[in-house]
Design a protein around this nucleic acid. Structure first.
Ligand code: FES
Ligand code: FES
Lengths: 151, 151
DNA sequence: TATAATTCGGACAAAAAACTCTTTAAGGAG
DNA sequence: CTCCTTAAAGAGTTTTTTGTCCGAATTATA
């Protein structure tokens, strides 16, 4: 029912970066504070996303992370294939090696349509759209960030 | 996208027990062999299901585990609430503390209908029905069991 | 009663996931 | 060139999950 923490952090961070001005590097420290997640751990995740071409990173002053050209259109499926492994959609819900109509477990034919729904949903949601949603102010990226002073 | 191994083992074992003659205790060793899972670990899981009233256990000769009276009608939701915790359906997919329309993350309104679909599916599937499906021979409980002939 | 078969319970071990620390390299500004 | 800021890299730690081991309790049967 859930994603790994790593995936959750990755998605949150990417959406946050997508809400910022393109081409302006965002500091890992700022992302971590905004999302209220451990900075050193987040850094590892972002580094990994860099290696896989989703982000660009810059060191030194004015450094930070920003979405690589064109990656605003990346889908959550793309992101999750990096964080959860390339065939995270190919697993049987009961843990069998293979999930297919030919080797179906007793849940398979009920689960399959739901799974397909999830897959198409993930293929449909892009970072850009999610960022736009956040920018409307109607949606939250993190719960009660340290700087949520209602003054 | 996946369940914990513990949940997978629990569901597999319960379905297997449900396929066996009611009232006849099934040996942990036999279940483990049939499902090809570690016996000592499975025993822990079954003990836990006993404590929560889903199974009855008997020690000594002719001992083993069998479904408690009426529990053939248990749903997967019931099982998973024991193995994954009582509010495993209440979590936000992005990891926020609360999942609700009022505190929605950017995925919430897309995810919610899918989640509801999963929940109703889990509420609908009973051990009895899954066991029947397995007994037709069309579905697998485990991949390549040591002995591919149940009975 | 003695014995073998089984679960029970707790401690233990290994592996994976989550998280931290430290050092190094790179880049911008004075 | 020097200083400061930042990410990169890698080793190390902690926590959770998964899995093992063993001795004690229980029960049928001979
Ligand atoms: S075989 Fe189990 S979900 Fe497809
Ligand atoms: S708030 Fe994130 S899924 Fe409901």
């Amino acid at each position: 029912m859930v994603l790994s923490r790593t995936s959750q952090y990755a998605i949150q961070a990417l959406i946050y970066i997508a809400t910022q001005a393109p081409g302006e590097p965002v500091l890992n420290r700022d992302i971590a504070e905004r999302l209220n997640v451990p900075a050193a751990y987040l850094a590892k995740i972002l580094q990994n996303l860099c290696k896989h071409g989703l982000l660009d990173s810059f060191r030194g002053r004015l450094g930070g992370f920003c979405l690589r050209e064109g990656m605003h259109k990346s889908t959550l499926m793309h992101v999750l294939q990096l964080t959860e492994g390339p065939d995270f959609t190919k697993n049987c819900i009961l843990g069998l090696k293979e999930c297919s109509d030919e080797t179906a477990c007793p849940m398979h034919f009920k689960w399959k349509p739901v799974k397909n729904k999830i897959i198409s949903m993930l293929n449909f949601m892009t970072l850009d759209e999610l960022a736009k949603a956040v920018l409307t102010g109607k949606y939250r990226l993190a719960d009660l960030p340290a700087s949520a002073i209602p003054s």
